[in-house]
Design a protein around this nucleic acid. Structure first.
Lengths: 322, 322
DNA sequence: CAGCGAGTGAAGCGAATGCTTAAGTATGTG
DNA sequence: CACATACTTAAGCATTCGCTTCACTCGCTG
C-alpha cells in the first residue's frame, strides 16, 4: 500500500473510470489499472465492479476511498506544514477530554493567546487514557485533564496540577431528588443520567463516579455536548454530574440544584500533562507556566463564555489505534 | 515520502534514539537513519537534533511526528476496515454542518438505526461548501444540511428536501431587544452575537443571514456548541440565530424571546444530499428514503434529546484539503 | 589518549514501485 | 457480426525502496 496507489484509486473512485483517472494523473491506463490491482491483491477485495454508467464501489472500496482520501490529504497537508515550520506563528496542540475541550480549554487558550498572540492553537479531544500516548507520539504538546504521569520520575510525562475542582450531582429543582435531604447511593443506579459525549469514560471524573456507583449504560443518555446534557437536566429529564464552579450561575438562578449524595462533592484536580525536560516544546512550556498563574485560575473559575472568532479553532476528535 | 519512512521517523521520535527505533522495528540502524535522511532531504528540515539525554525535535519535526502518527495509524486502520468489509454491520457515514451534527443528526440517526439495527453510523462535520466534494470522494455517504446539488441533472449529487425550517433571531426576554416591537435591520450589525462553531460560515442559514446584514467578526463570540451559545443568550449576553422548532421549549418557558426583525423568519429547507443512481450506496439510499417518512419528520420536529450510549458516535471534524 | 556507544555514509543487492508499449479480454453499439 | 470503447494482462525497463555489511565520524568517559 503506497501513497501513489492510493492516489490512483482515489482518482478512479472520484472520476468513475480508469481512463479518466489516468488522464487526470497524466499517466497511461495500465499504470492506474496496475496500482488498483496491487491494492486489490493486498486487501483481498475487488474494490469496484464495472456497471452501467460507470463503476460501483464495493463496501470495501467505499471504505478504502474514504480512508485513502484522508491519508493522501493528510500526507499533503503534513508536507506543507513541515515546510512552513519556522516561518509564521508557532503552534500549540492541546489535547483534552471531550468535556475539557468544551468547558475549559477554550477559555484557557483564549486567555493564553491573548498574552502570546504569536501562537496558533488547535484542540483535540481524546479519552484521558490516551493522554500519555498522544504526548509521547507528539500528536499534542499538552494534555489538559486528569493526571497522566505515573509515580516514577523516569516517566516521560509530567503532570502539573493547576486547578482544584468539586464534582457534584445536579438535578432540576423540581426533580424528585432536587429537594430531598440526602439521597442514598443505592438509589443512584436507578436514576436516569444525562451526560456529555465522554460522560461514561471511566477515565474522566464523572465517568469514574458513575462506574463506581454501578450506573449502567441503559440508564444513560448521551448528548452531543455537556452543555446540552445540563440543559436537559434543567428541563427535569434526569440527573447529571457537573463541576461545581461551572454551574454556579445555574444554581444561583434556580435552574439547577445540587443533589446531596453521600461522599459528594468529590474533590479533584485538573492537570496540565506534558513531556519532561528537553522533550517539551517551547510552546508547551509556555502554556505549562501559564496555567498556574492567577490570571489563568481566574479565567477558569469564571463560567466559560464565547471566544472571539479569530481565536476559535474547532475541536478535532482523534481516533486511536493500538 | 513513504509509509515506511514515516514509521521509522515515528519510532525515533517516540523512543528518542535511532538505535532504539531500529531495535523496535527489527532492522539495523542505517536503515532507520537512511529513512530519516530521506525525509530530511525531501522536507528540507533537520527534523531533530541530538541533545543531552536523547533527541530534541525541531518545530518541523514536531509537525511531522504528529502528521506521521496520524497517517500511519489511518493507513493501518483503513487496511483493517477494508478487510473487515462484508462481515459485520454495514456502515453509514453522515456529513453535516457543525450545528446539524449537534442538533439534527443525532436524533435522526437514533431513529434510523432503531429501525435498521444492523447499520453502524458515524457523523462528520464539514462546512456546507464541502458537501459535494466529500460525497464525490466517498468520505461520506449522505450530507445533511443545505442543498449541495446544482441545477444540472448531470450533477453527480442529488439533493432531497425533507424538512422545512424557520430561522429566527432570539434574545433573552430581559434583553433590550427582547421586548421591542420591531428592530430595524440597520441595528443588527451593532449587536453582540453569540454563535456555535459554524455560526459565521456563510454556507449555513445563520451565517448567510449574518453576512447579509453585515455583522462583523468583532461583534461575534463563538461557543463550542450551538447549545452553549443559546445558554449565553438566555443569560442575556447577546443575540443569536436559531431554528424556531428547536427553541420552542425555551420560548414557552420564557427563557428566550423571538426578536422581531424585518424579513424574519427566514424560511428554508434541510436536504439530504447523496450521489445519484448507481453510485449511491445501499445504506445511503436507505437513509434518503427514511428522512422523508413521517416518522423522521416527527423525530426532527421534537427537541433533540440524548441518545442511548450504544448509539452514540462522536462527531469527527474533518479537515479539507484542496 | 584509548575506548566506547551512538549515529552517519558508502557500497551493494534484491525486491518493490512506477512507468511504458503492445497485446489481449470483456462489454456494449450500430 | 463488425467495431469501438473500456479495461486488464504481459513484458520490459529505469528508478527507488529497503535493507544489509562495513567503515567512518562524532562526543563522551575513564
Amino acid at each position: 500500500m503506497t501513497l501513489t496507489q492510493l492516489k490512483a484509486f482515489i482518482a478512479v473512485a472520484r472520476l468513475g473510470s480508469v481512463k479518466a483517472a489516468a488522464e487526470s494523473l497524466e499517466v497511461t491506463e495500465p499504470a492506474v489499472s496496475g496500482a488498483v490491482a496491487a491494492l486489490r491483491r493486498e486487501l483481498g477485495d475487488p474494490l469496484f465492479v464495472r456497471g452501467a454508467g460507470g463503476i460501483a464501489l464495493t463496501p470495501g472500496g467505499r471504505r478504502l476511498a474514504a480512508g485513502a482520501a484522508e491519508i493522501v490529504g493528510l500526507a499533503e497537508e503534513t508536507r506543507q506544514r513541515v515546510r512552513e515550520a519556522g516561518e509564521g506563528p508557532s503552534y500549540l496542540r492541546v489535547a483534552s477530554t471531550e468535556s475539557g475541550a468544551e468547558l475549559i480549554v477554550p477559555a484557557l487558550l483564549e486567555a493564553f493567546t491573548r498574552r502570546q498572540p504569536d501562537i496558533d492553537t488547535a484542540t483535540i479531544a481524546v479519552p484521558p487514557a490516551a493522554f500519555s500516548e498522544i504526548l509521547i507520539d507528539r500528536r499534542a504538546d499538552v494534555a489538559i485533564g486528569p493526571a497522566a504521569a505515573g509515580e516514577s520520575p523516569t516517566d516521560p510525562v509530567e503532570s502539573i496540577a493547576f486547578l482544584r475542582y468539586q464534582l457534584v450531582v445536579v438535578a432540576a429543582p423540581q426533580h424528585p431528588l432536587g429537594a430531598r435531604a440526602t439521597v442514598p447511593t443505592a438509589r443512584l443506579p436507578r436514576e436516569h443520567w444525562l451526560l456529555g459525549p465522554d460522560g461514561l469514560d471511566s477515565g474522566t471524573p464523572s465517568g469514574a463516579f458513575l462506574t463506581r456507583h454501578g450506573v449502567e449504560d441503559a440508564r444513560v443518555s448521551i448528548f452531543p455536548s455537556a452543555t446540552g446534557a445540563l440543559d436537559a437536566v434543567a428541563a427535569g429529564e434526569g440527573l447529571s454530574v457537573a463541576f461545581l464552579h461551572l454551574v454556579r450561575d445555574e444554581l444561583r438562578r434556580g435552574m439547577l440544584a445540587v443533589v446531596d449524595v453521600p461522599g459528594m462533592p468529590v474533590n479533584g484536580m485538573f492537570y496540565a500533562n506534558a513531556l519532561r525536560g528537553e522533550r517539551r516544546s517551547q510552546t508547551a512550556s509556555a502554556l505549562c507556566r501559564f496555567v498556574t498563574t492567577p490570571a489563568a485560575t481566574q479565567v477558569l473559575l469564571a463560567r466559560s463564555s464565547g471566544v472571539p472568532v479569530n481565536h476559535f479553532r474547532p475541536t478535532v476528535h482523534v481516533t486511536l489505534w493500538s
